[in-house]
Design a protein around this nucleic acid. Structure first.
Length: 717
DNA sequence: GTTGCGTTTATTTTT
DNA sequence: TAAACGCAAC
């Protein structure tokens, strides 16, 4: 668990004498060599220490929320290297986020030293697979310079195919088709094995789109996110020599957030682990909240069966929250049947009771939160950044944003539009992608006439038709426009100019050390910035967009600095995987460092902690969400989400809900969440907002009318 | 190409 | 309610 606030509480506080180099800031872990020449496990509790010492055979660490999981993993890696003589190169640690990977690497390096840590692989599933594929994907018939398609590219491709498949044009949602395809890939179901399971139009459409989609990707020399895993699995299955290479290499494997792995990731681990797995997985089945994305809770629940001889260690001592908060969390999660039994406990105080405030409506809920922030901040000398407002759906953030702005309270919103979803960024990246891989047709079509260069829709259409008819890649067609009869001279010239431009820059990008300059010149020559100013009226907005383009360039500069053997392809891979080069001035990590109230969804709060947590909208149809109620699935995952929210709180938890809520324009009565009843009443301090005179719209209009009538009356006198 | 209007539809989103 | 989308008209 990423402990953002450091090891503020609990038994393992290591006081830092003044002589400690200030690189080890307070709250950071001291390097091991400082307090002991040997690995000193005495700062760990007995379960943690046992987990660290275990070095052979499969190990399952069931790590409850706030139980010091990250510390155990990093200690264990350091222990393997320092005490068991395992070579850094034989260690593989897999996480789900780049942030987690980075932190883990840093902490291990702090313990064993940067030099000793060199050669270990700490990465996300996806970047691990990119690395494997970059080396050996040719065995699967792709080229090494493959593009990685993220959501936007995928959607475009699916839409394209759908149009071709369904000429009638019955408009099905491309996102949903893509979801079905993604789901299939996560289950390792290849196009030819896709079967319609429940007979609705989406399944049929997916069955027809999936094979074409996959074929197109291959033709474009592109892979999507799910392919990264699926193709790696295929590669390892079909090519024993490649598999053997990695088995030899990764003798010790560790997987974080194991409860979030899907079938494909499971298979990948299985393959790498082989017959004598030194596989250590860490996770918490109670915090599995990504089932809708293909994560299979069965992976963690069945681990002992899947890997005979598994040692199981439960970490139940919690170093984060008060006793009351933990009691509530335990009581709630006990209602789930399909889980590993465990209960969090703390050596610390019970702390305050949990507040539950039943507000009148949305606005009242937001105002109540503001009042509490003011009061608690003053009373407990807290910073703004000690508060988090957590909600189930992102739309809920609005009311709070408005109120926060009104009150002049600084806040950061986490989530929302992604940097790479912004048009100008996509355009810029599209050029780079095509320069690396000219078969990437989704992006080639995107830039073909942007900025406008006289290759309009008609021309593009003719080119595409011709390429389809002759079975030639679009790029080859562009190279030889003379071959197409029905093209005008002007169009031919425009195409030739485009090809010349791309060729020229492809050459230039080969000089990796000059990449950034080259990119800036490319942007300049294309006139991308001028294009933005031309199209966007609001100069402030336009300026911001231009800055976003510049961000891509400076991200590249950062990449160039860090990377030993940089390349444009390498940069794009990092960018696609949202790796550290993420050129967002407001990355999640940075946002969390500001002194501002944090707003985010329950999902994105996983792994974080805050002294004071507001969980808002604790109502039926939000939590559990309506969707899960309708579909007759169990609400277990929703309960886990609630559990995740509760266990984010360190000192105090405040639950809120509204009695009425405006929904799609109309005011609707809201019922308190069923989960509230699962928390023992004695842990809760309930409070119901008083009825405030609420006026209906009609009444308000009437009142306004009377008011103006009154004024008019006065003026008339 | 753009603009504007009517229609549609409202989860979560580590990579 | 409101935002996003598609389509038709300019």
């Amino acid at each position: 668990m990423g402990q953002t606030a450091g090891f503020a509480a609990g038994a393992w506080i290591i006081r830092q004498p003044a002589s400690i180099p200030n690189t080890y800031r307070s709250g950071r872990l001291c390097p091991l060599w400082f307090f002991s020449v040997d690995m000193n496990l005495s700062t760990l509790n007995s379960e943690q220490a046992a987990a660290v010492r275990h070095d052979k055979g499969p190990l399952l660490i069931l790590a409850g929320a706030g139980s010091g999981k990250t510390r155990v993993i990093t200690f264990r890696i350091a222990y393997l290297m320092g005490q068991r003589g395992v070579a850094a190169g034989n260690i593989l640690a897999v996480t789900f986020t780049n942030k987690a990977a980075r932190e883990m690497r840093e902490r291990v390096e702090e313990m064993v030293g940067k030099k000793a840590g060199k050669g270990m692989t700490v990465s996300t599933f996806h970047s691990l697979c990119v690395r494997i594929l970059r080396e050996d994907i040719e065995a699967l018939g792709y080229k090494k310079n493959f593009s990685i398609y993220a959501t936007a590219d995928q959607v475009r491709l699916v839409k394209d195919i759908m149009q071709r498949v369904d000429v009638e044009g019955r408009k099905l949602d491309a996102d949903r088709i893509l979801y079905l395809i993604s789901d299939a890939k996560n289950r390792l179901v290849p196009p030819e094995k896709f079967t319609v399971r429940w007979h609705d139009e989406y399944e049929y459409m997916a069955a027809s789109v999936y094979p074409r989609y996959q074929k197109a990707l291959k033709a474009y020399n592109a892979v999507d996110f799910d392919d990264l895993i699926m193709l790696t699995v295929r590669l390892l299955q079909e090519h024993p020599d490649v598999l053997e290479k990695y088995r030899q290499r990764f003798r010790y494997m560790m997987v974080d957030e194991y409860q979030d792995t899907n079938a494909a990731q499971y298979k990948l681990l299985r393959l790498l682990a082989g017959d004598h797995p030194n596989l250590c997985v860490v996770g918490d089945d109670d915090q599995s909240v990504y089932g809708w994305r293909g994560a299979d809770l069965g992976n963690i629940l069945e681990f002992e069966k899947d890997f005979p001889g598994t040692t199981v260690i439960k970490l139940e001592q919690n170093y984060r929250s008060t006793g009351t908060i933990l009691a509530a969390a335990n009581a709630l999660i006990r209602h789930n049947i399909r889980r590993k039994v465990k209960a969090l406990w703390t050596a610390g105080d019970p702390g305050r009771r949990i507040d539950y405030i039943r507000c009148m409506d949305e606005e009242d809920e937001a105002r109540t939160v503001m009042e509490r922030i003011h009061a608690e901040r003053f009373r407990n000398e807290l910073q703004y950044s000690d508060f988090a407002i957590l909600y189930r759906t992102n739309v809920q953030s609005r009311a709070f944003e408005e109120q926060l702005r009104y009150e002049n309270i600084p806040y950061v919103l986490i989530g929302g539009q992604q940097f790479f979803d912004r048009k100008e960024v996509k355009d810029t990246v599209a050029y780079l992608k095509v320069l690396v891989n000219h078969r990437d047709e989704v992006n080639l079509l995107r830039i073909l006439n942007y900025p406008k260069r006289g290759i309009g829709e008609t021309t593009a259409d003719r080119l595409i038709r011709y390429s389809a008819k002759k079975q030639l890649p679009l790029w080859e067609v562009l190279r030889d426009p003379a071959a197409i009869e029905d093209l005008g001279e002007k169009s031919r010239a425009a195409i030739a100019a485009f090809v010349e431009l791309m060729d020229r820059y492809r050459q230039r990008f080969n000089r990796h050390s000059l990449m950034v300059e080259t990119m800036r010149e490319l942007i300049d020559e294309l006139g991308l910035e001028a294009e933005i100013y031309r199209n966007i009226e609001d100069p402030v907005k336009a300026r911001r967009r231009v800055e976003n383009i510049e961000e891509v360039a400076s991200a590249m500069a950062g990449y160039l600095e860090r990377e030993e053997s940089p390349s444009l392809a390498g940069f794009l891979a990092k960018v696609s995987l949202l790796d550290d080069e993420r050129p967002d001035r407001d990355s999640k990590e940075k946002k969390l460092q500001r002194d501002a109230v944090v707003l985010m969804s329950l999902h994105s709060s996983k792994g974080l902690e805050f002294p004071m947590v507001f969980m808002v909208g604790v109502e039926e149809e939000f939590l559990p969400h309506r969707k899960t109620l309708n579909e007759g699935v169990d609400v277990d995952e929703e309960r886990r989400l609630c559990y995740v929210g509760i266990t984010r709180a360190q000192r105090h938890l405040i639950l809120l809900g509204a009695q009425k809520r405006k929904k799609y324009g109309t005011l609707q009565p809201r019922a308190a969440s069923r989960f509230l009843e699962e928390i023992p009443a004695e842990l809760l301090q309930q409070q119901i907002s008083e009825e405030r005179p609420v006026h209906s719209e009609e009444e308000q209009e009437k009142m306004a009318a009377n008011f103006f009538a009154g004024i008019r009356g006065i003026l008339d006198d």
